[in-house]
């Protein structure tokens, strides 16, 4: 049996919102250590890797490993019915064909229960474990979201170049071109505003703007995003959870 209680429904809402426009359904793999998901979008360009560690939950138990096939659109509709501040418990028997979703209002004496029909999802898993990284950028997630949105107005591609002391985001299209350069910055009073850039090799990569638009839907999950780049490899965009992460692996574009 699986039972996981979130302190606030808002966390699961944000996770599902960040995933549902990229993949319509995916398997949630539940073990005694927590819940993980790997899912790839239909075009096989963007991969989502989610880890919700046991410590994220107020209460968690999973007696036997369970795989829950979940339609994210339907899941989103049901969890949208709870208030952000509600306790949210997910519950499934070992051979369940439904997932129980329970909201508890912390002020009123009110409990709401829903059941989500589970799906049988046959998806292959990709081997993504070992990756070298040539450059790592950590910046405020809201800043990264704004850069992606602004550059998308110009082109369907965003070029990221990283040198020793700066990262440059640029786009060029029919109406013109634009660029944003960021440099490392330490803000002691507001550490969430700090920017770090570490580099082993200079980077020059281009990514599809429409996939970046999907990635930045995770912005509300974390004040920071970490971008790991390696020449001619997928970029990794990581949003940390209180205990765990939501990562996106995005295949780069190639120049002709």
């Amino acid at each position: 049996m699986l039972e996981g209680k979130f302190e606030e429904a808002s966390l699961l809402k944000k996770i599902v919102e960040a995933m549902k426009d990229c993949v319509s359904s995916c398997n949630f793999n539940c073990t005694e250590n927590g819940i993980s998901v790997q899912a790839v979008d239909n075009s096989r360009v963007l991969l989502i890797s989610l880890l919700i560690e046991k410590d994220t939950f107020e209460e968690y138990r999973c007696d036997r490993n369970i795989t829950l096939g979940i339609g994210l659109g339907s899941f989103s509709k049901i969890i949208g019915n709870g208030a952000n501040s509600d306790y949210l418990t997910i519950q499934a028997e070992d051979d369940a064909d439904t997932l129980g979703i329970i909201f508890e209002d912390k002020v009123k004496d009110k409990i709401s229960e829903y059941n989500l029909k589970l799906l049988d999802i046959d998806a292959d898993l990709l081997e993504v474990d070992a990756m070298e990284t040539d450059a790592t950028i950590t910046l405020p997630s809201a800043d990264f979201a704004k850069i992606c949105k602004d550059m998308k107005t110009l082109s369907e591609s965003l070029q990221i170049t990283v040198t020793k002391d700066s990262a440059k985001f640029q786009s060029a299209g029919e109406i013109g071109s634009g660029s944003v350069v960021i440099k490392p910055k330490t803000d002691i009073d507001h550490p969430e505003e700090s920017i770090t850039i570490s580099l082993d090799k200079p980077i020059d990569l281009s990514f599809g703007s429409k996939y970046l638009s999907d990635i930045i839907k995770a912005t509300s999950l974390s004040q920071k995003v970490t971008i790991k780049l390696t020449e001619d490899s997928p970029g990794v965009f990581e949003y940390k959870l209180p205990s765990g992460y939501l990562r996106f692996y995005l295949a780069p574009k190639f120049d002709e």
Binding site: V40, R44, D124, S157, S206, P234, A251, D255, E256
Partner: peptide, 14 residues
């Protein structure tokens, strides 16, 4: 011109 690569080029299926 530029084209979009697939993740399949980089990751093998488990």
């Amino acid at each position: 011109m530029s084209g979009q690569q697939s993740l399949n080029r980089f990751f093998s299926v488990k």
